[in-house]
Design a protein around this nucleic acid. Structure first.
Length: 436
RNA sequence: GCGCCCUUCGUCUAUCGGUUAGGACUCAAGAUUUUCAAUCUUGCAAGAGGGGUUCGACUCCCCUAGGGCGCGCCA
């Protein structure tokens, strides 16, 4: 290995950290940890309109909850605008970029005409070889890359293989907006270069961008990073993930009672495999992770499988840790719930039984509800059905026996069995009302 | 419209030219001498379609179909 790889996760803070972003972050993190490389976090906040501090906070806390620790300080892209501009100016000076005075309206009209004529919608290069005259004096302009038009650009992708684009299909992208702020395309390339990023692993929605970014990199004479574009995640029905459609923030999964290790395992298996292995610990994942085993096709969310995995991890978690998890979970509720000392002790004592039958923390808490409060509980429908007059009579008869029994351990069961035998009843006839 | 990507059980996937196409989730049945859960056993279930290449294709190539992504002075 020539050098330690440098990976990065670069979300834009325009919303929550959703499941797709979390997986992208996970894969980057896994590869960095696998190779002993570096995993950086960069917030792409160049869109001042849509970036919010809340979203930044959500991303950071989401990453933390997922257990994806990043190396060094978080880089904020907007803070580096001067540097981005500097690169653009240099390109301009070298003749690798040019000023385009076309107005937004003019370009919109151009695209409409292209669409109407059934031609590809691309910037037509109207200012590419035109020198601005006196009438352009003082007029706003954008800076565009003077991209090579002949030949092809090949994205060497570690998951997709070589992807070729005819340069004639790529138009001259904007580097600097008319207010001289850098665009995303410029910022990403410059930041990745400055941060020493060696591997750009991101969602497949960026595949097309890779070709254009490569053109920029070429113009800058900068080294080319390794690319890897991850197939997207779809909703349970195969449709695109959207806000109303399964694209939940990772915090939503936390609130539904899923464990971080469940999420890591599940997201890893969504698009990556290691033979027939399904249950993969994070340590194991770090050891095994590679790019070769990443699948090429989009995957769907499957909540049943998530539940199943989560059940496994709940059972595998030590009782004391689960008590802590439950306590933390309850404290996040609105209004927050605080467990009394005795409630915590009861929870700890009952945990071996409780965790056997819960697929989420929410279910675990539901099952433990009776431990938190004293006094009678309301009957649900199923329970009410079991409490027939006969059942009630049976219960009344058993009661003295139970009161005389130590409730801890197997004594309870044998007491009930003995009772049933004496009365000539089937076990179920006693047990069912009792459960109710 | 143009470009690019993808396509094995319902879902996640294994297979890297020769297999009765395997595993997991889901579902169904059974076992575990009361329920639920867990666990175990068994079962249902797949190579989008059509052409090639080859002694032999799920696997390589082409076409079609379907799905996705992109085509902003958004990221």
């Amino acid at each position: 290995m020539l050098e330690r790889p440098v990976l990065r996760f670069a979300p834009s803070p325009t919303g929550m950290l959703h499941i797709g972003g979390a997986r992208t972050a996970l894969f980057n993190w896994l590869y960095a940890r696998h190779t002993g490389g570096t995993f950086l976090l960069r917030i792409e906040d160049t869109d001042r309109e849509r970036s919010t501090p809340e979203a930044v906070a959500a991303i950071l806390s989401g990453m933390t909850w997922m257990g994806l620790n990043w190396d060094g300080d978080v880089v904020y892209q907007f803070a580096r605008a001067a540097r981005h501009r500097e690169v653009a100016e240099k390109l301009l000076a070298n003749g690798k970029a040019y000023r385009c005075y076309a107005t937004a309206e003019e370009l919109t009209q151009m695209r409409e005409e292209q669409k109407a004529a059934g031609r590809p919608m691309r910037y037509d290069g109207r200012w590419r070889d035109r020198t601005p005259g006196p009438e352009q004096e003082g007029k706003p302009f954008v800076v565009r890359l003077k991209a090579r038009q002949e030949g092809e650009t090949i994205v060497k992708d570690v998951v997709l293989g070589d992807v070729r684009f005819e340069n004639s299909q790529l138009d001259d992208m904007v580097l600097l907006r008319s207010d001289s702020t850098p665009t995303y395309m410029l910022a990403v390339v410059v930041d990745d270069l400055d941060m020493g990023v060696t591997h750009v692993i991101r969602g497949a929605d960026h595949l097309n961008n890779a070709a254009r970014q490569l053109q920029l990199i070429e113009a800058m004479g900068a080294p080319m990073p390794v690319y890897g574009h991850l197939p997207l995640i779809n909703g349970p029905d195969g449709a695109k993930l959207s806000k109303r459609h399964g694209a939940l923030a990772v915090e939503a999964y936390r609130d539904m009672g899923y464990l971080p290790e469940t999420m890591r395992n599940y997201l890893l298996r969504l698009g990556w495999s290691h033979g027939d292995d399904e249950i993969i610990s994070t340590e194991q994942a770090i050891q095994w992770f590679n790019f070769e085993s990443i699948g090429k096709s989009a995957a769907r969310m499957d909540y049943k499988k998530l539940d199943n995995l989560n059940g496994h991890y709940i059972r595998a978690t030590p009782d004391a840790s689960l008590v802590a998890e439950v306590t933390a979970f309850l404290s996040r509720e609105t209004p927050p719930r605080v467990l009394s000392m005795t409630a915590r002790q009861r929870l700890q004592a009952a945990m071996p039984l409780l965790k056997e039958r819960a697929k989420t923390l929410v279910e675990l808490i539901q099952g433990a509800e009776f431990l938190f409060n004293d006094g009678p509980r309301a009957l649900d429908e199923a329970a009410a059905k079991l409490l027939t007059p006969d059942g009630r009579a049976t219960l009344a008869a058993v009661l003295p026996r139970l009161e005389a029994t130590d409730w801890r351990g197997p004594g309870l069961e044998s007491a009930v069995r003995a009772f049933a035998e004496e009365r000539g009843l089937k076990l179920g006839q006693v047990a069912q009302p009792l459960r109710a």
